[in-house]
Design a protein around this nucleic acid. Structure first.
Lengths: 336, 336
DNA sequence: TTCACCCGTCGAAGCGCTTCGACGGGTGCT
DNA sequence: AGCACCCGTCGAAGCGCTTCGACGGGTGAA
């Protein structure tokens, strides 16, 4: 392995001069800088992380704590992870992957060992066991999702409450009077996952505001669950004409199930999904949706983290405003 | 942050004694060891990675180079990544995530900076541009997938050639005489992705051996592609009764498309998929499949890597034998 | 011409840890 | 009883890098 002393020898200067020539933290003459750069190129020198003194103890690594528990949609998480890695690279950082179960232990370990400078925490619950740890650690962090008590923490998320309201507003504007929310699997709510709860709140309060009849149903995934929930909805709310779906993998099966029951989308039933845009656009019927901007969330999280690392103050909670995109799955309610 | 000297002071010994007490590399009296352990517990000490001298230069980090290019099925990759992280943790290692595009550059950077001790490389092509780099680097590596020239490299993969043969053998045994392979998207073959090509080889050679009429069709994903390929198959091979699918996201749409053309599975058409078992089992018709054991591949890769790191010699190429699981999508060919 | 100042460079220290060599004091054998 | 040996512990070195303080020589101003 080629070290800084090798470069120094070849360039005929001292190691410290090489360091300064590369970092630019002190003035170095053009001639010297050029010689150093040439030596670096010729030898293929790259600073080795082990040498970094604790002054600049930065490992240039961010940790990413991903959930991957049941009920979490894998492609969404993956897209998010990729955007984090990409954004991190743009800021000259690498990403260390921590999986759930590792969650708490992993964050502690990574912080103590100095393996990472900062951590992005996904899938935050309202009362998340990791929060006390994050508060006590000096390790900068950004949460994806907003817990019940976000004081002192940096959080980013889609404004799921507003997203829920937006969906209902849209259905109400189209004349729908009876609506339902088909949500994530029950375990997601049991875990008190923040974003899922907030969406329900927004949905419910907007429905009340518009004086709509509404119901909320957590729902598992798969064809059988879709059929069951579709039948149940029609049984319990025969006048149902508007459905909000917050459950990516259920989207296609649910449309299927409704059609098998003789309900056309959007003829008889309007459907709005809360999910990443590609999922909505490529469903068997292109679905009107409020996009979950996973890529943007990842990028934002990294930006915030980098700013924190540089000492810049950052806002406590950033909520991205929801945006609704109309596609083929919503229509005005047919006249009675 | 609590360091080894703090522990030493509290335990009333020297730092080196603490180190030995924790590593066990030299005999330490029971009394001393106990005092050290108590001090470690009380102070919450954890060794900081920055202190590790290059003698034991191990960073306890593995890099994982994941593809995430078009045509690669995301859930499969994710499952694989998770199994790598889990296995790595079992060996007291963490995992650094490198994404494609970063591929070559990333491996070089990580190696030079000493960020990782070893690397797992996914989605290997027959002529992979990363191979020369891997050979030249002293960084131990394991490839998922077998390139054209695997000499000097450690590779793990499902034996896709045998998998292709196994599918055809099964169809032939059931009496099918005209078969087709619906493969991955064309770009996968253009890239000369190793496993995709090998599957085709196995499929073709087994078909020839059994004197079957056969055809191979790369195919994109999505409902439209499924419909197009289904129609084309029936047009070009009207007597077709056996289909092998090597394209996870196409499975459901393809079954759909066949049924819309009036072909029942398995009544009129037998279907075998090469994909992870859960995908096959949860398709709209449970599909007979040869499993792609992503989790096992990840675990194996990490095991091999750990053995390499410890200096144990490891086999060059490990091919896992394919296993076929019968489900509801295959049946004997109906008598003419 | 002289002095102050600054630019460009160097040497040394230090980070937290591991490990090598050394050393002191028991123990066991002769 | 004496000697060798080994167990348990300590001190010091060293890893590759960055950065602080220092220093020498040139330049500009008085």
């Amino acid at each position: 392995m080629v070290k800084i002393t090798d470069v120094a020898r070849r360039a005929g200067v001292s190691p410290s001069t090489v360091s300064y020539a590369l970092s630019g933290k002190r003035p170095i003459s053009d001639a010297t800088r050029r010689r150093v750069q040439a030596a670096v190129r010729e030898l293929g020198y790259r600073p080795h992380a082990i040498g970094r003194p604790p002054a600049d103890r930065r490992s240039k690594v961010l940790a990413l704590a991903v959930p991957l528990r049941s009920g979490v949609h894998v492609p969404v998480v993956t897209q998010f992870a990729v955007s984090v890695v990409t954004a991190a690279r743009a800021h000259d950082h690498d990403v260390l992957l921590l999986t759930q179960g590792e969650g708490e232990e992993g964050i502690g370990r990574v912080a103590a060992a100095g393996l990472a400078d900062a951590v992005v925490v996904m899938d935050v619950q309202l009362q998340d066991p990791r929060l006390p740890l994050l508060r006590s650690l000096s390790l900068p962090s950004v949460l994806i999702g907003v817990p019940a008590e976000p004081d002192g923490l940096t959080c980013v998320d889609l404004d799921f409450r507003a997203a829920g309201e937006l969906c209902v507003d849209h259905l109400a504007r189209l004349g729908h009077r009876v609506v339902a929310l088909v949500g994530s699997p029950p375990e997601v709510y049991v875990r008190r996952t923040a974003f899922a709860r907030r969406l329900v709140q927004g949905f419910t309060s907007a429905a009340d505001r518009h004086r709509l009849t509404s119901a909320v149903h957590p729902c598992g995934t798969g064809r059988d669950a879709a059929r069951a929930i579709a039948e149940r909805l029609l049984r319990e709310q025969p006048a149902l004409t508007g459905v909000v779906v917050h459950n990516e993998p259920l989207l296609d099966p649910l449309i299927d199930a409704f059609e098998r029951l003789g309900l056309r989308v959007p003829g008889d039933l309007s459907l709005i999904a809360v999910c990443p845009a590609p999922v909505a656009a490529s469903a068997r019927v292109p679905v009107t949706s409020v996009a979950v901007p996973s890529a943007e969330l990842g990028t934002r999280a990294v930006h915030l983290l980098v700013r924190k690392l540089s000492g810049t103050p950052v806002p406590g909670t950033t909520l991205l405003p929801p945006r609704l995109t109309e596609r083929a799955s919503t229509a005005a309610r047919a006249a009675a």
